[in-house]
Simulated assay, not measured.
Amino acid sequence: MYIWEQPDWPRLTWQDGSIAAPLAAVRHDQGRLIGRMEALGFKLREEAVLQTLTQDVVKTSEIEGEQLDATQVRSSLARRLGIDIGALPPTDRNVEGIVEVMLDATRNYQAALTAERLFGWHAALFPTGRSGMTKIIVGDWRDDSTGPMQVVSGPYGREKVHYSAPPAPRVAAEMEAFLAWFNAPLTTDPVVKAALAHFWFVTIHPFEDGNGRIARAIADLALARSEGSSQRFYSMSAQIRTERNAYYDQLERTQKGATDVTSWILWFLDCLGRAIHGADGVLAAVVAKGQFWERAAALALNERQIKVLNRLLDGFEGKMTSSKWAVIAKCSQDTANRDIAALLDLGLLRKGDGGGRSTHYELVL
């Protein structure tokens, strides 16, 4: 029996005594992180938000097996947030869609969550009306015309059903109850409400596709309410991506149990705590970037050098070679070599270990 088949669904319960200590710890860590970020100053705080949101968008899509170009995501976010990061590359429709959803969830966190708002999010995720090659219902609840909504894995003919969602005729009423609860005045801690909202929505699974991404956007909205701020300094989606198997295992176990969801709330709080602690890496990177540009401010750098240095500071994957430099800067190999040589002389770059074809360059931080 699935949880939605229980006679007392959707009256979810939990053991307050079991969650009290981890909840208090997470709330303490939330406040401590926000305090540290507020002390950064406007420009560095702006950069921290941009890095966090970029990570959030990329990782929430990655959980569903969709790989987005992080540079495009950063570009789309910067344009919408009014942050100057230099030349902005064009972005794909699928990137723009998920960016729109995440920004609406976090910047408009005080607005009511309605069916129409969710339909708008869903339409933004699937602008072509298709999931991959498959045509789906977009901007409306599923109708199960292609069969029951199930979460499955395994090869064709040997699939394993992990979960079966409520049948389509129940979805409208289920979502009406969910939205009424979500928009009602708080009767529990808002972080606990974020955990419950994530679980409740993904259990209903109201759309043909995109349910996981929208569930995580709803959780982000609830977490923004818990902090009273639209600025995001940690990424729950990035942490869930790291713990993806445990995430799905915990969902499956809870969905096959009774309406006491203490175990899910505990897992959510632990994961959130690790996400908040993971923001130390973002903080360190932002501070290092700020200090780097303070050193470089008085130096006469050209646009190509600034562009590639920023790519390196933003976490360039792989090793930066002169040929990669030429591609990114859209210049000749000779020009790339001159740009690099100048930065070596200025002490902003150094040669990495290895020579010959393995010659690459690293930032001096």
Rank of each mutant, 00 (worst) to 15 (best):
Y2E: 11
P22V: 12
V191E: 00
L186F: 07
L12C: 01
A112N: 10
A123D: 05
T114Q: 11
Q72R: 11
I328G: 02
Q55N: 13
G228N: 10
R74H: 01
T128H: 05
N94T: 09
G17I: 05
I328W: 07
F182E: 03
E66I: 07
I19R: 00
L118G: 03
A105S: 12
R216L: 12
G65S: 08
P169D: 11
E317I: 10
A329N: 06
M149D: 05
G31R: 14
T52R: 03
K324V: 13
I3L: 13
K351F: 02
K351E: 14
L44W: 06
D353V: 11
V191P: 00
T259H: 09
D143V: 10
D314K: 07
V327W: 07
M236S: 02
L365Y: 11
A222L: 10
W325V: 02
S145Y: 12
R11W: 03
R304Y: 09
L309E: 04
G347V: 12
R45Y: 09
L363E: 12
T60R: 02
P89N: 00
R216N: 02
A215F: 02
L179F: 10
R311F: 03
G278C: 09
E159I: 06
H198M: 05
W9N: 03
Y2W: 15
A115T: 11
S75G: 14
W9Y: 15
W14A: 03
A342V: 12
D56P: 05
M133G: 05
V364H: 03
S226K: 02
L344N: 02
A215R: 04
A184G: 06
E38Y: 14
I340C: 03
H28W: 14
G352Q: 06
V202C: 01
R216S: 02
E176Y: 10
D209A: 07
S226N: 07
V191T: 06
A180N: 05
Y156S: 06
L349Q: 04
W9V: 08
D84I: 05
K307Q: 09
G97K: 00
S323M: 11
K160A: 08
R244A: 05
G355N: 13
